[in-house]
Amino acid sequence: MNSLPQIAHGYRLQWESAQQSHVLLYPEGMVLLNDSAAAILQRCDGRRSIADISAELELLCEESGLEPQVRDFLDIAQQQGWLA
């Protein structure tokens, strides 16, 4: 996996009020995301490392040791083709 994860070309993350959730849009498809998935993907901008993303989320959630869960999710996202 890229050490600076980034959402794949042609994919777009946006908030949808009708679904009350973030969605990941891509050619002819979409994924409804839960809050945790959205929080991680929002930070996949090609500039932050996995450690940076994890640290930000730990601050946000007032919780420590989130990096393994972040990595697990990013592995799944990579397999799904959501990341470049």
Binding site: E16, A18, Q19, V23, L25, E28, G29
Partner: peptide, 8 residues
């Protein structure tokens, strides 16, 4: 306004 997201 209805909530459609994909437009073909």
């Amino acid at each position: 306004e209805l909530g459609a997201v994909q437009c073909g």
